[in-house]
């Protein structure tokens, strides 16, 4: 027993050390910064204060932004689910062999390209005189410009593109885990495709949908690259404001405080969903 204990210790210590150094320490330091009255490496002397947190609650601007970011997260997660789930369903239940592998590769491919390049590529597509605009005008020369760069829809398109693979992959994994004989059994009992989808496939793949929704919602709420590059003046979100505090305004304490408030909001939302998730996951 003692030996087993020691080997478990030896196997887990590197992981915990790494997590401590790479995650816990910086977050702790940031948490400390969020209570400072001035930036830590600045010239002004800093003292401990709650002002940074109070700012969020006293200025409507911040709560408006937080709500806007949460709505953006919900919208992107919902769109990813609407697009990603059917794609995963086709991949897992309709295709096999070469085609499935080829399409899965296409789903994963965006991961291997730089996020910044991906987002800038969208500016080429969405801007006036961009690819979409030119294509439309090639067919309908008299049509008005359809360039939508620097707008809310452009942000949504960019974010959906960035996070869709997470949704497809998590849904694909949970759809793959469904025993095909369950679908056969339902069909043999008289169920048609839409009934099988509603009563067998959707409930059984719900864990994948839920994980996919969390994996898209959480990063989208704090996203700053897509809003900044694709959104222009429309692109002010909680994420871009926090980024500004660190890189432009050099007000680290406020940036840190806003980060922790956002983290708190996201955790609160997940906690509210937890009973529902737990009930669904138990069926496994």
């Amino acid at each position: 027993m003692a030996r087993q204990g020691r080997s478990i210790f030896a196997l887990t210590v590197p992981t915990f050390l790494w997590l401590t150094v790479a995650v816990v320490l910086p977050i702790t330091v940031m948490f400390y910064f969020s209570f400072l009255s001035a930036s830590p490496f600045g010239t002004k002397p800093a003292s401990l204060t709650l002002d940074n947190y109070a700012t969020f609650f006293t200025k409507d601007f911040y709560s408006f932004l937080a709500w806007r970011s949460i709505k953006l997260g919900l919208l992107v997660a919902a769109l990813c689910a609407l697009i990603g789930f059917p794609a995963a369903l086709v991949l897992s239940h309709r295709l096999s062999g070469y085609w499935r592998e080829a399409l899965l590769l296409l789903v994963i491919l965006p991961f291997w390209s730089n996020a910044l390049i991906r987002i800038f590529a969208w500016t080429m597509v969405l801007r006036e005189q961009g690819l979409v605009d030119q294509a439309v005008h090639a067919v309908l020369p008299w049509a008005p410009s359809v360039g939508i760069l620097y707008s809310y829809p452009a942000i949504v398109i960019g974010l959906v593109h960035s996070f869709l693979p997470y949704m497809i992959l998590t849904c694909y994994i949970s759809l793959q885990a469904i025993d095909p004989s369950l679908v056969d059994a339902a069909r043999g009992l008289g169920a048609r495709d839409h009934t099988i989808l509603r009563r067998i496939i959707l409930p059984l793949s719900f864990p994948g949908l839920a994980v996919g929704a969390i994996l898209t919602f959480v990063p989208v709420v704090g996203a700053f690259m897509e809003p900044r590059i694709l959104g222009g003046r429309q692109g002010i979100t909680m994420g871009t404001v926090i980024e500004d505090q660190f890189t432009e305004v050099f007000n680290w304490p406020l940036g840190a405080a806003l980060s922790f408030i956002l983290l708190g909001i996201v955790l609160a939302i997940l906690a509210l969903c937890y009973p529902l998730l737990r009930a669904r996951f138990r069926l496994g």
């Binding site: 056969d184 043999g188 008289g190």
Partner: peptide
């Protein structure tokens, strides 16, 4: 088809 079938692994709906 109105046919009842028992599958090898039973294929009961786990949920």
């Amino acid at each position: 088809r109105d046919i009842g079938m028992v599958f090898q692994n039973y294929a009961l709906f786990p949920h």
